[in-house]
């Protein structure tokens, strides 16, 4: 017998996040993401185009009906660019948490039969949304050129940071929803409503500056996507954002991530019994 490693199986103790194990299973994460992307693009006629069309159509609608009619100033960013920049991040976030939220139920057959760190499932769902975001991002660049939008060098810092914040926000909330969905089967009906409500509580289609009172701005900043969207637009504008609000939003995103991962870890070991 080869002198192989010892594995220990013990009662669940709700231990901490085992990053080492996730790294060990990175190939599975890759294959799950690949599967989801391939299946998604094979099943829809429009395929990759869908990732582009969705924000583009929404942007057109918002530009024509909201931007023009309500005439709020989007500062030194032209409204289509303003709306599109918010929408691509927002869609990455919302599709990320919806997919991650449903992912555990969709993969329950696998969960019941094979062990692997369960976190890989919502993670791969989020990777799929990020790929969609990257496709739409190419269109975003084209749009910047088309509207001759000034872009500062700070984009090199802020765009990846904004994407990171989006990942943090969608992973935290996605894991929370995935665990709740497995535990309470009627929970998922509440999710689309929540996301819709949250859209109007984010600076996606209107600038924060139209809000008059301070406390409303703080309420808005609790939304973890607030910082991501503000930072993403920062290189396009000379208007400086309110830093405390950005910090509030980042903190809220991180707290959500910790809460999501903790709850997911706590219920993880029982998924096979529940699913």
């Amino acid at each position: 017998m080869t002198d192989s490693e010892e594995y220990v199986i013990e009662p669940a103790n709700g231990g901490l996040l085992n990053l080492k194990e996730i790294v060990q299973y990175h190939e599975l994460l890759y294959f799950f993401s690949l599967r989801d992307i391939m299946v998604k693009y094979k099943q829809t006629v429009l395929g990759v185009l869908w990732a582009v069309l969705q924000p583009l159509l929404l942007m057109l609608i918002f530009t024509m009906f909201v931007g023009r009619s309500l005439r709020f100033s989007s500062g030194d960013i032209s409204y289509p660019v303003f709306a599109f920049s918010g929408l691509i991040l927002w869609l990455a976030f919302s599709s990320g948490i919806i997919n991650a939220g449903n992912s555990m139920i969709q993969n329950s057959q696998i969960i019941k039969k094979v062990y692997f760190p369960r976190l890989i499932i919502p993670m791969s769902a989020i990777i799929v949304s990020i790929i969609d975001f990257l496709v739409a991002f190419v269109v975003f660049i084209a749009l910047l050129i088309f509207y001759q939008q000034n872009v500062g060098w700070s984009a090199i810092l802020y765009w990846p940071l904004a994407l990171l914040l989006t990942i943090v926000a969608s992973l935290g909330l996605g894991c929370l929803l995935a665990a709740l969905n497995i535990k309470y089967r009627d929970f998922r009906y509440a999710i689309p409503f929540g996301i819709q409500a949250l859209l109007f509580l984010s600076p996606v289609i209107y600038p924060v500056s139209i809000l008059e009172s301070d406390w409303m701005q703080y309420v808005l900043a609790v939304n973890p996507m607030y910082a991501a969207i503000i930072l993403f637009r920062l290189p396009l504008t000379t208007v400086q954002p309110s830093l405390p609000l950005v910090y509030v939003s980042i903190t809220s995103g991180l707290l959500l991530l910790i809460a999501g991962l903790t709850y997911f870890k706590r219920t993880e070991t029982y998924f096979a019994d529940l699913a």
Binding site: M1, S4, E5, E6, Y7, V8, I9, E10, P11, A12, I111, K112, K113, V114, Y115, T269, Y270, A272, D273
Partner: peptide
Amino acid sequence: KILSKITPPTEGRIVSRGRI
């Protein structure tokens, strides 16, 4: 199921010296 780590035991401990 416990041996293949799909569900945890409530009590006890298993030591395995190989891949299951």
